[in-house]
C-alpha cells in the first residue's frame, strides 16, 4: 500500500513539475506575442502619423529636401517597405497566436472531477502534442522550426532597426502641433522598449525550440520501447527497459 502511494506521489510530482515548466514556456510565448502585437500596433500608428505629417505638409522628408523627386520616390519605397515589415510582424502574430491558443487550452486545469485519484492535470501530454504538431507543421527538410524562428529573430532585429531609423528621421523635424510632438516621442520610446522585449523573448524561444527539437527523437524511442512491452510480461515497464 505504501509502495503504491509513493508511486502515485511520484506521478503527481512529475506532473506538477512538468506543468510548472510548461506554464513557464507558455508564458514566454505569450510575452513574445504581446510584444509583437504592441510592436505591430505602434508600427502601424507610426506609419499613419508619418503619412499624416507628409500629406498635411507639416514635414518634408529629409531625402526629398536634399534630392527632390528622387528623394520622394525613395521615401515612398521606404514607407512601402515599412508596410511589408508590419505585415510580416502580423504573420508572426498569427504563427505564435495559433500555437498559444492551443497551448492555453491544454494547460487549462480540468475541474470537472472533485477529487482526482492520482493525477492533478490532464493537459500535459496534449501540450507536448500541440508543440509536436506545431513543430512538424513548420519543419521542412531544409527549413526546420529552429531555423524559421532564427529567421524571425533576425527579421525582428532588422525591421525594428529600420523602423527606429525611419522614426528618427521625423522625430527631429519638429511639428507645430505639441500633441503630435509628444505622441511621437512616446511612440518612439514604446517602440524601442517593445522591440527590445520582442528580441529578448525571441532569443529565448529559439533556445527553447532547439531543446524541443532534441527531445522529440527521445520520445520516439520511448514509443518504440513501449511497443515492445508484451502482454505476457507482467513486470513493471521500467524494469523491462534495458
Amino acid at each position: 500500500m505504501e509502495k503504491t502511494e509513493n508511486k502515485e506521489n511520484g506521478l503527481i510530482r512529475s506532473q506538477k513539475s512538468l506543468y510548472i515548466k510548461f506554464k513557464k514556456i507558455n508564458g514566454l510565448f505569450k510575452l513574445h506575442l504581446s510584444s509583437l502585437a504592441l510592436l505591430f500596433l505602434l508600427g502601424f500608428a507610426y506609419v499613419i502619423l508619418w503619412t499624416y505629417l507628409v500629406f498635411t505638409g507639416q514635414t518634408v522628408p529629409e531625402l526629398s529636401r536634399i534630392y527632390g523627386l528622387f528623394g520622394t520616390i525613395v521615401t515612398i519605397l521606404m514607407t512601402s517597405a515599412l508596410f511589408i515589415l508590419i505585415i510580416q510582424i502580423g504573420i508572426q502574430i498569427i504563427f505564435y497566436g495559433l500555437f498559444i491558443l492551443r497551448g492555453n487550452r491544454s494547460l487549462k486545469q480540468n475541474k470537472e472531477e472533485k477529487t482526482p485519484r492520482n493525477a492533478l492535470y490532464d493537459g500535459i501530454v496534449p501540450y507536448i502534442t500541440n508543440f509536436y504538431a506545431f513543430f512538424n507543421r513548420y519543419s521542412k527538410q531544409k527549413t526546420t522550426l529552429a531555423i524559421r524562428v532564427k529567421f524571425f529573430l533576425l527579421f525582428n532585429f532588422f525591421s525594428g532597426f529600420f523602423v527606429i531609423f525611419l522614426f528618427t528621421r521625423i522625430l527631429d523635424t519638429g511639428s507645430a502641433n505639441d500633441l503630435i510632438n509628444i505622441s511621437m516621442v512616446i511612440i518612439f520610446l514604446l517602440l524601442l522598449f517593445f522591440w527590445m522585449m520582442s528580441l529578448m523573448t525571441s532569443f529565448k524561444i529559439q533556445k527553447e525550440i532547439v531543446r524541443w527539437e532534441k527531445l522529440f527523437p527521445k520520445l520516439e524511442e520511448w514509443a518504440q520501447e513501449f511497443e515492445q512491452v508484451s502482454l505476457e510480461n507482467s513486470k513493471p515497464f521500467d524494469e523491462e527497459a534495458p
Partner: peptide
C-alpha cells in the same frame, strides 16, 4: 502498469528540461 509507463514518459520529458 499504465501509470508506470506514463510516469516514465513524464520523467523522460522532465529530465530533458
Amino acid at each position: 502498469r499504465g501509470e508506470e509507463v506514463l510516469k516514465r514518459f513524464y520523467t523522460l520529458v522532465n529530465d530533458y528540461f
